[in-house]
């Protein structure tokens, strides 16, 4: 039996999973929508990965989780590593591209830039208060234009004269977009303009004050959009690499971290059939009224968090 490692990246919009062997080869992978239900998405993911994996040959011996629901899903899967997505992305990318100097990452609701020297992260930044220039912005504009977001990139590449669209803020971008459509710009030019707006917004906000050096790797869901990639190359004047598995990089990175952790906790694909329930409970012991989250597996409390002091601690039986 050979050892395999599971990495799961549960983002706001999509849930990604990979199973690696000891040499970082991807044995199984999937990418599906979170749909506001990280537990359900993880179950679907577990089922799909189980189908792809040759269970007579491989046994998953450790799991790692990352992404905004990493804690909840980490509890659910009995993960040995629960890691933030910045570290996970950096580890994943430097494994595949040891020379990488800059990582652009644009996901569903967040975007980040990671700067690397000699294989080590030396600086990073993440968008703060606003989701302008992220995947969810592009999806909502695609809906407005009646175009599937998956087709955005190809359409954008056909434009010879991208419309100038304000990039500072999604609200401005949206009203600019409507204006450009009403005065007669073609959809192609508007879509190309939108892709450029996302890039300009990213470079002005997340990339502000950062020195961008090649090789540049672009990943996250939006990296699948060829129009955005082309706009990045135009704005930075550097070639931009997009890995075919770029959308899985967080899951890939955290699977590697799970392997490196030297902890093993054999993964049981039965999670797909177990019942997980979360319950929010306000502490009420003082005016802070912490929101605690209680996680139950098949009716049994397995973990709880959210309290800021000992008084609100919940004992796990």
């Amino acid at each position: 039996m050979e050892k395999a490692y599971l990495g799961v990246d549960i983002g706001s919009i999509s849930t990604k999973g990979v199973v690696l062997d000891a040499d970082n080869h991807i044995l199984a992978s999937d990418y599906l929508w979170t749909e506001g239900d990280p537990i359900g998405a993880t179950k679907r993911l577990a089922r799909s990965l189980e189908k792809q994996l040759d269970s007579t040959r491989y046994q998953i011996v450790a799991a790692g989780t990352t992404g905004s629901a990493r804690k909840l899903v980490g509890t659910m899967l009995g993960a040995v590593v629960v890691k933030n997505e910045i570290t996970a992305h950096a580890i994943g990318t430097t494994t595949l591209y040891p020379d990488v100097r800059t990582i652009f990452e644009i996901g569903g609701q967040d975007s980040k830039i990671i700067l690397i020297e000699n294989g080590v992260v030396v600086d990073y930044a993440m968008n703060t208060l606003c989701a302008a220039g992220t995947g969810s912005f592009l999806s909502s504009q695609a809906r407005r234009l009646g175009v599937a977001v998956e087709d955005f990139g190809e359409i954008a590449l056909q434009s010879k004269n991208p419309a100038a669209i304000a990039a500072r803020c999604t609200v401005f971008a949206e009203s600019d977009l409507v204006h450009k459509a009403q005065i007669g710009y073609s959809k192609t030019d508007i879509i190309a303009g939108l892709c450029r707006a996302v890039v300009v917004n990213y470079l002005n906000n997340v990339g502000k004050g950062k020195k961008i050096v090649g090789p540049v790797v672009f990943q996250g869901g939006v990296s699948k959009n060829a129009g955005v990639r082309a706009a990045f190359e135009k704005e930075t004047g550097l070639p931009v690499i997009v890995d075919p598995n770029g959308h899985l990089m967080g899951a890939f990175g955290v699977a590697i971290l799970a392997r490196r952790s030297d902890h093993e906790a054999p993964f049981n694909s039965d999670v797909a059939d177990m019942e997980f329930v979360t319950r929010a409970s306000n502490c009420g012991q003082c005016a802070n009224n912490c929101e605690r989250i209680l996680v139950y597996r098949d009716g049994k409390l397995i973990d709880a968090w959210g309290n800021r002091c000992e008084r609100g601690a919940i004992r796990i039986p």
Partner: peptide, 23 residues
């Protein structure tokens, strides 16, 4: 009041500086 975003940034910052220090 969400702590997740803050924890993500702090933990990543810690990972970065500790890995830099090791390197």
């Amino acid at each position: 009041t969400s702590e997740t975003g803050l924890n993500t940034r702090l933990e990543a910052f810690y990972d970065m500086i500790s890995m830099r220090k090791q390197a």
